[in-house]
Design a protein around this nucleic acid. Sequence first.
RNA 1: GCAGAGAUGGCGGAGUGGUCGAACGCGCACGACUCGAAAUCGUGUUACGGGCAACUGUACGGGGGUUCGAAUCCCUCUCUCUGCGCCA
Length: 430
Amino acid sequence: MLDINLIRENPDLVKDNIKKKFQDKKLPLVDEVIALDKKKRELQSEGDMRRAQRNSLAKDIGTLMREGKKDEAEKAKLLSKENNERIAQIEAESEEVEKQLKTRMMSIPNIIADDVPLGKDDSFNVEAKTFLGKHEKDFEVPYHLDILESLNGIDLDAARRTSGNGFYYLTGDVARLHSAILSYARDFMIDKGFTYCIPPYMIRSNVVSGVMSFEEMDGMMYKIEGEDLYLIGTSEHSMIGRFMGEVLPESSLPQTLTSYSPCFRKEKGAHGLEERGIYRIHQFEKQEMIVLCKPEESDYWYEKLWNYTVELFVSMQIPVRQLICCSGDLADLKYKSCDVEAWSPRQKKYFEVGSCSNLTDAQARRLGIRYKNTATGKNEFVHTLNNTVVAPPRMLIAFLENHLQADGSVFIPEVLRPYMGGKDKIVPKK
RNA sequence: GCAGAGAUGGCGGAGUGGUCGAACGCGCACGACUCGAAAUCGUGUUACGGGCAACUGUACGGGGGUUCGAAUCCCUCUCUCUGCGCCA
């Protein structure tokens, strides 16, 4: 959600931004918002005046009653009643105007950064940097599911029976590897000075609507029957919601947090679930990083965050690249975003393993997360950022493909061995 | 889950129908004193919105109601505390 003052004072900037995102259908919203905002202020003016009158009449009545002037008091009561009827009208009208204003405000996208490449869909995303090159294997790399099965590491049949498509059982060394990666990632971020946090895995609807758009909510979130609770799609939801309505002391910024949670997603819509494999599933686990900072620091943290993910993958010897998200592929709340993608030696291409975003004040405005700016003495909105540290089991695909050896075993990089009981490889079943 | 008590500014805490945006204390900011600091004294200090301004509105956990008028009365939801019950 944008600042109404920005739309009022600089509508052309907002419109240009909509065009840059190839959402021309939304262009009329800007003028509608300006008109509704004007109407809202008019209603407020009259309402304020009427309410001022109500207050002073009420005060008078109090005085008259005390002085025993009953007749005059009754007269004033009648006057007040009339006034109150008009107030009720105005309030009903205001409510309607505000509702319309809000739905429009909510669908006007956040202003994007100047350096976001323009393009209408993900085919215009831009590769910025690659790390560790591209592993070439001198043997054919099988589909990840076949690798998992050769290691006795997965049971999809049972998962379909218990839970349906989109779920999995990981077993044995593979399950241990999954946990090892998460534990290593957690410690990696703690070493970077982040605070580890385990958040609630369910959140209320008001938090949900604060952290995402309605469309996202509908396509992603599982609702708990009979309760106002949703399963989180990522720990970002409960981590950002944690600060809802707060005014943080300036000295507490930046908040640099790393959180673990399972993530639940319907994955309703365009892509659907893959029939085979664990690329897109209803339940996975993720280590996340979250930053709340002062506005002038969010660009700095954005660069820092995605580089942490790269550093983590490089330390596990998995080649990655940074893919910059173009204007049309950027979600409406985001100022800037990039994906960290891992190299697949089987497909000979990169695929997404993490996503880093700077939302500037868009989330903070919706959720009312502010800080006291000691220089100005004002409460101002913070900036929020989030980034994937690592999300197995998807990351496991990259891991298995890159570390598979010709003999069918899977190499464990040095950094993970302490979490794997010292093992340096996983060997296939006989 | 049941019963009782409660939710007020950055914090603690008064206030039970009108003079309350809210006593008092802490904290914070500024000033005085000091070589400097502590202590002390003084002044200021809720937030958000409308208006060029004068000024004005809203908010005492959330929502709804009663009333000319609600922090205060009623309903409801959420949360906290105490006791009982249940349980990793």
